Amino acid sequence: MKKYIITALFSLFAIASVSAQLKSDAQVSKLYQNYISIKDALASDNADKTSKAATEFIKTASAIDYKILSEGNVNTLKKDATAISNASDIAVQRETFFNLSDNMIALTKQFKISANPVFVQYCPMADGSWLSNEKKIINPYYGSSMLSCGSVKSEIK
């Protein structure tokens, strides 16, 4: 009987642990989707849409539990997104996107954010990386002026 109780307790702890991991992955996955919206808006040269996407990113980041992602990391992400949201000039938004991308790339390596591979892409002209759901290059740093500039540097599974 004691053996069954111990086994049941271990099973409950394992289920709770898996449940907590899935919750954390889901929260970070939503943040990633907001990031992709920012990237897509930058690639389409739309400063207003970029600002709105960054505002959504901030809302999602504000809801993340500090047990999942440290307060310092959340604040860093929110700081970059706030700078993007507050800027009306797309060049300024793109400049801040460098930092946001570097931080999101690091985060993506820690959490399972997608069932599909996530691609780390790089533009040598901008000397900057970003994340994408697809291999096709759609450059957020130059938009329509150099939309396909760059290459896939790595894949996060």
Rank of each mutant, 00 (worst) to 15 (best):
A91T: 13
L131R: 09
K79N: 15
I105K: 11
L107S: 03
L100Y: 02
Q110I: 04
T76I: 10
S101L: 04
L22M: 10
A83Q: 15
T82N: 14
I90T: 06
N46L: 02
I36H: 04
T50E: 01
I90Y: 02
T7W: 03
K112D: 14
A16I: 09
S51P: 09
S85I: 01
D65R: 00
S114L: 07
I64R: 00
E95L: 08
L42H: 05
Y35G: 04
K59Q: 13
I90A: 00
E71T: 10
Y66P: 12
E95T: 07
T50G: 05
V120Q: 05
A26N: 14
E95R: 08
N116K: 11
D102L: 08
L22E: 15
A53M: 07
I15V: 15
V28F: 03
N34W: 00
V92F: 10
S88G: 11
K49Y: 05
K59P: 00
Q93H: 06
D65G: 01
A54P: 10
K59T: 14
A47L: 07
S17Y: 12
K23H: 12
S70M: 09
S19N: 14
F111W: 06
S132G: 12
A20L: 11
Q93G: 01
T96H: 12
Y35M: 14
M125T: 12
A47K: 08
S24Y: 11
Q121N: 02
L42T: 01
Q121I: 06
L69F: 04
L131M: 09
N133I: 03
K136H: 02
S132N: 08
I64A: 01
S62I: 03
T82G: 13
S11E: 01
D45G: 10
N133D: 12
F98P: 00
S132F: 05
A106G: 11
T60L: 05
A20I: 06
T60V: 15
A126M: 11
L9G: 01
S17Q: 12
I36T: 08
D45H: 10
I138T: 14
A26P: 01
V92K: 15
S101E: 06
S85V: 01
S19K: 12
C123D: 15
S62C: 02
D40I: 03
V120N: 05
M104Y: 03
N46G: 02
I68P: 00
E56L: 12
S114N: 13
N75K: 07
S132P: 11
L31H: 01
S19G: 06
T108V: 09
I113G: 03
K79D: 13
K23Q: 13
V92A: 14
L12R: 05
V118A: 07
V74I: 15
K112C: 01
K59V: 00
T55L: 13
A43M: 02
I38N: 02
L131S: 07
I90V: 14
M125Y: 02
K49P: 00
A87E: 12
I6F: 07
A54N: 11
I138R: 08
S17C: 09
S37P: 00
L22Y: 13
S88F: 09
M104R: 06
K136Q: 14
D80W: 07
L22K: 12
D48W: 04
A26Q: 14
G128H: 09
I138L: 06
I68D: 15
A63R: 07
K67D: 14
I68C: 11
S85N: 14
D45R: 12
